[in-house]
C-alpha cells in the first residue's frame, strides 16, 4: 500500500477545520450531485461520460461533474445564503502526474455580497486551518501572508512588456462578451502575441492559426508563470478579460475580476468576482458550447435571473494538503488511487 498514514489523518483534520471555519462564519455546507445530464460547458475540460440505463434497456448519457460550480450557483440563484462544498470532481483527458489526478477533492465556496478581495482573506484562513491540521513545520513559502501581484506587473517584470498597454491598444478595455463581433475584436491582440512569441524565438507549434487565449497561455507559461516568486503564497490577480470565463469584467479596464493562488509555484486555487448578468452568461454558454455534449441553455436564465452579487473560490484540497506538508507531489495522499499504468 502506497499511502502515507499520517497524511490520511491530516486530511481528516483539515476537513474538520475547514467545516468549523465556515460554520463559524455562517456558511451553509451543501452536498450536490456528482452525476449530471447537462454539464457546464468548458471547452478545455474533458468529461467522464457514463450511461443511465432505463428499465426498458434504452439509455442516455450522464456525466461526472468537473466541479460543483453550476449547482452552487443554482442554489445561490434560488436564494441561498453563502455556502460551501467539499466534494469530488472528475476531469478526463489529463495526464496523471505529480500534481494531476483525474479524480480529486475540491473545496468550493461562494460568499454573498463578497468580493474577490474578501475571498483572498478567507483563503489565508483556509491555509492557516490546513497548517494547523498538519504535523510538520512549514516555512514562510506556505505560512507567509499572501502576496498579490497583478498579471500586468508579472508581465512587465518577467516578459518585458506591459500586457495592459497591449490589451488597451488592441481595443480591449471594457470589452463585453455581449458586444457584436466580440471574437473578431481579438485580431489585434492575437497578432501582438504572435509577434512577441516570434521575437523571443520561443519554440512553438502552429502559432499562425492559434487563438488569442492559446497564444497568451504560451507566453504566460513560458515566460511568466515559472518565474513568479515562490517565497510566499502568491495571488496572481487581474487576468485578461478576453479569456472566456465566468468572472465579471472590471469596468473600463481590459481585466477580469479573477485571481489564481500559487503555493511553492503550484496553482492551488482560483477565484472570481462572479458574472451575474443573464446576457453575458448566455453568451458564455453559446461560445463554450459548440464542441461540448448536451449543454442546457436554460442554465444562464436560471442562474442569471436570481444570482446575487458574490465571489466564488475553488481550492484543490489534495494539492493544498501536499504543499502544506512539504511534499513534492500528490503521491501517498489518497487511499487507493488509480494509476494510468496500473496493471490489468
Amino acid at each position: 500500500m502506497q499511502f502515507k498514514p499520517e497524511a490520511i489523518i491530516e486530511r481528516a483534520a483539515m476537513y474538520r477545520g475547514i467545516r468549523d471555519y465556515f460554520d463559524n462564519c455562517g456558511y451553509l455546507e451543501v452536498d450536490t450531485p456528482l452525476l449530471t445530464d447537462s454539464p457546464i460547458p468548458e471547452s478545455h475540460i474533458e468529461l467522464f461520460q457514463t450511461r443511465k440505463v432505463r428499465p426498458d434497456g434504452t439509455s442516455y448519457p450522464l456525466y461526472l461533474v468537473p466541479s460543483p460550480e453550476i449547482w452552487l450557483k443554482m442554489a445561490l440563484a434560488s436564494g441561498s445564503s453563502s455556502l460551501f462544498q467539499i466534494g469530488r470532481c472528475f476531469r478526463n483527458g489529463e495526464q496523471m502526474d505529480k500534481w494531476h489526478r483525474n479524480e480529486f477533492t475540491m473545496l468550493e465556496w461562494y460568499g454573498v455580497d463578497k468580493t474577490s478581495g474578501d475571498n483572498l482573506l478567507v483563503m489565508q484562513e483556509i491555509i492557516k486551518v490546513t497548517l494547523h491540521a498538519v504535523n510538520s513545520e512549514a516555512g514562510e513559502e506556505v505560512s507567509g501572508n499572501i502576496r498579490e501581484i497583478s498579471m500586468d506587473e508579472a508581465f512587465r517584470e518577467f516578459a518585458g512588456f506591459s500586457l495592459e498597454s497591449a490589451l488597451e491598444e488592441s481595443g480591449l478595455s471594457g470589452i463585453n462578451r455581449t458586444s457584436p463581433g466580440y471574437p473578431a475584436s481579438l485580431a489585434d491582440i492575437t497578432e501582438f502575441f504572435r509577434s512577441r512569441l516570434k521575437e523571443k524565438n520561443l519554440p512553438s507549434g502552429d502559432i499562425d492559426r492559434e487563438s488569442a487565449d492559446d497564444l497568451f497561455h504560451r507566453l504566460f507559461l513560458t515566460l511568466v508563470e515559472d518565474a513568479l516568486p515562490a517565497d510566499r503564497p502568491l495571488a496572481l490577480t487581474h487576468w485578461p478579460a478576453f479569456i472566456p470565463t465566468l468572472a465579471r469584467g472590471i469596468p473600463d479596464t481590459p481585466w477580469a475580476d479573477r485571481w489564481e493562488l500559487y503555493i511553492r509555484g503550484v496553482e492551488v486555487a482560483n477565484c472570481y468576482g462572479e458574472e451575474t448578468g443573464e446576457e453575458l452568461l448566455k453568451n458564455y454558454w453559446e461560445n463554450e458550447s459548440p464542441e461540448k455534449p448536451d449543454p442546457d441553455f436554460r442554465w444562464p436564465q436560471l442562474i442569471g435571473r436570481g444570482m446575487p452579487s458574490c465571489s466564488g473560490t475553488a481550492v484543490g484540497l489534495d494539492r493544498l494538503l501536499a504543499l502544506v506538508r512539504g511534499d513534492d507531489s500528490l503521491k501517498g495522499l489518497d487511499l487507493f488511487p488509480i494509476h494510468d499504468n496500473m496493471p490489468r
Binding site: 478545455h44 489529463e94 519554440p203 487565449d213 497561455h217 507559461l221 479569456i243 470565463t245 496553482e267
Partner: peptide, 27 residues
C-alpha cells in the same frame, strides 16, 4: 503537464542539449 485555469493543456519540458549539455526550458 500544465493545465492553466481556463485554457488548453500544455506540457512544460526541461530539455538537455546533447551537444552542448545546455538546459532549455520550453512549453
Amino acid at each position: 503537464f500544465v493545465n492553466p485555469g481556463k485554457g488548453s493543456a500544455f506540457v512544460r519540458l526541461k530539455l538537455k542539449n546533447l551537444r552542448s549539455a545546455a538546459v532549455l526550458k520550453i512549453t
